[in-house]
Write a protein that binds this DNA or RNA. Sequence first.
DNA 1: AGACTCAATCGCCTATCGGCGATAGACGAT
DNA 2: ATCGTCTATCGCCGATAGGCGATTGAGTCT
Lengths: 108, 108
Amino acid sequence: MDELLDRATAQTYASWFRALADPTRVQIVEYLARHARPMSVGEIVAAVGLAQSTVSQHLKILTEVRFVLVEPVGTARHYHINDACVDCFPSAADVVMGRPAPSPNGAC
Amino acid sequence: MDELLDRATAQTYASWFRALADPTRVQIVEYLARHARPMSVGEIVAAVGLAQSTVSQHLKILTEVRFVLVEPVGTARHYHINDACVDCFPSAADVVMGRPAPSPNGAC
DNA sequence: AGACTCAATCGCCTATCGGCGATAGACGAT
DNA sequence: ATCGTCTATCGCCGATAGGCGATTGAGTCT
């Protein structure tokens, strides 16, 4: 009775949800979305009140699933929400229906 | 510049997503959903191939957010998907819009 | 009562996570 | 070239998560 969702798909789903499984990352995402313009790490650090290295790490996790996009601007790097990924972010219904998970590294 | 999503809301969102942030739990949820009938722990253990204690722990996490419901039947316990929670499970758009998070312990 | 079954809990171990400070690398300005 | 600024990475730490076996508790059936 091995009729399980294949592990790779399950892993992909899990990595999507893991990106938002931390309250600080949820706050960062909402913050980036509300101020619609691209924002530097320094601004985000000031907003969330954590160490720069910590924020940088969270941003790395968010960019790894393309949920947030980066754009180098001089010495700074501007982060902004990937609206396409907001749309393709999996829902619980997707999981329940066993739909193939949207690739976290593709064009979404 | 403290205009952040309040921590409690962020935490609630995070706990929702953390429930599906593990591939085994994704598989369990999809398995429960596909076989629409309530299933015992033993059946789920046989399906996922992990120790009974491990599966029990995963089911506890899933029931804590009411994503999965339990019903004692004799000495067994039958688990099944909470369709209401499938519907109210937060989307990325909810986070981005800063909508109040659905309470994970309420009636959904 | 006693034996059996099913599932939750406990204790332990390892791996990962989230936080930090310190360091390193890239770039603009002087 | 040098300095200052910005951000990524590294190393460390405590806490949490996921895995397991063993035990306990609750329920059924003789």
